[in-house]
Amino acid sequence: MTDTIHITVENQLGEIRQLEIPEGINLSLMEVLKASDYDILATCGGMALCATCHIEVLEGMEALEARSDAELDMLDTLPRAGDQSRLACQIRLNAALDGLKIRIFANN
């Protein structure tokens, strides 16, 4: 088991960067993306009410917890949401996410 979580992030411009996050940081993926200077509005502050942290999971979907009803309801309002869509605010970081690959959508 590693003490660092590695997440590959593709931004809205197609630029790819790998984040290294200490395990046990107890933050959501949205909080880490904002702290890493990604263009994420997170207007609602992580309550699954605005969908401005919409991401697509490219690899590692099986490591994520199931989407909540609130997250599914919010994703249903997005024209570009698909089977791999998630709200970054609803993903809590843990060691199982090591190797996750995501793409950030342009702000909705």
Score class of each variant (00 low, 15 high):
M1S: 12
D3N: 15
I5C: 00
I5V: 07
I5L: 00
I5D: 03
H6P: 00
H6D: 00
T8L: 11
E10Y: 03
Q12Y: 06
Q12F: 01
Q12V: 14
Q12T: 14
I21Y: 01
L27P: 00
M30K: 03
E31G: 05
E31R: 06
A35G: 08
S36P: 01
D37T: 00
D37G: 03
Y38D: 01
I40T: 00
I40M: 07
L41S: 11
T43R: 08
C44Y: 03
G46T: 07
M47H: 03
A48Y: 04
A48L: 01
L49E: 07
L49W: 06
L49Y: 05
L49R: 09
A51R: 01
A51C: 03
T52C: 05
T52I: 03
C53F: 02
C53H: 03
I55E: 03
L58P: 04
L58I: 15
G60C: 08
G60L: 09
M61R: 11
A63P: 06
L64A: 05
L64M: 14
L64P: 02
E65C: 09
E65K: 13
A66K: 11
R67Y: 07
R67V: 11
S68F: 13
D69K: 13
L72C: 13
D73A: 11
D76G: 13
T77E: 09
T77W: 02
R80C: 15
A81C: 12
G82L: 06
D83L: 15
Q84C: 14
R86T: 11
R86D: 08
R86I: 08
R86P: 08
L87F: 07
Q90D: 10
L93K: 01
L93N: 08
N94M: 10
A95H: 10
A95S: 13
I102E: 02
R103T: 05
I104C: 09
F105D: 06
N108E: 14
